[in-house]
């Protein structure tokens, strides 16, 4: 934690309502800050950059901008270890996903995720399968796969999911 003085006047008291309205964010208010999530978290075990308990605490305080703008919600590896162990059923990976969805709507989208959207739009999948890939598959006796990107692209447009271009 930095020594920076935080002005509580900037807090948004409705931030936790906003999170609770997201799919997966419904149980945020149940957190009583026991830190079971952080204690078992594989990412928190590898780096100080990620601390789920701290993020939830900041969200409950209403530190909307700090949470949405920060890198740390993107560091959840979605392993569900905390999901299984949380005594309050806060459903943290789904909660982090809900916060990510809000951050994306505010325009905070890490580049890696934007690139993935581009792949999905172009190929309907993360790794393209064109003639070269199908020739390799044939060498190993595997059947060809035909890409079907059109309907995935339609879903992205319909839900307003933007890639590099957007």
């Amino acid at each position: 934690m930095s020594d920076e003085i935080i002005d509580v006047g900037t807090f948004d008291p409705h931030f936790c309502d906003e999170i609770a309205a997201e799919p997966g964010g419904e149980h945020i208010r149940r957190c009583f800050s026991c830190s079971t999530c952080t204690a078992g978290c594989p990412v928190a075990g590898a780096t100080d950059k990620y601390n789920p308990r701290r993020i939830i605490h900041m969200a409950l305080l209403g530190m909307r901008e700090q949470v949405l703008r920060s890198d740390f919600v993107w560091l959840c590896s979605v392993c569900y270890t905390c999901y299984e162990r949380c005594p309050q059923d806060v459903r943290i990976p789904e909660l982090m996903n809900g916060i990510r969805n809000i951050a994306v709507r505010e325009g905070y989208i890490p580049r890696a995720f934007r690139l993935q959207v581009e792949k999905l739009r172009a190929h309907g999948r993360l790794y393209e399968i064109e003639d070269y890939e199908n020739e390799r598959r044939a060498e190993y006796g595997l059947p060809p796969i035909r890409e079907d990107a059109e309907e995935v692209g339609w879903i992205m447009d319909r839900m307003g999911v933007k890639g590099e271009g957007g």
């Binding site: 995720f113 999905l120 999948r125």
Partner: peptide
């Protein structure tokens, strides 16, 4: 082998949960 299967939706969920849901549902 089912013709037309695409990505499951996992990479779309962080951006838009419902987009991921629709990809999976498809």
């Amino acid at each position: 082998d089912v013709e037309g299967f695409s990505c499951c939706g996992f990479p779309a969920r962080p951006l838009n949960w419902r987009a991921g849901l629709l990809m999976a549902a498809r």
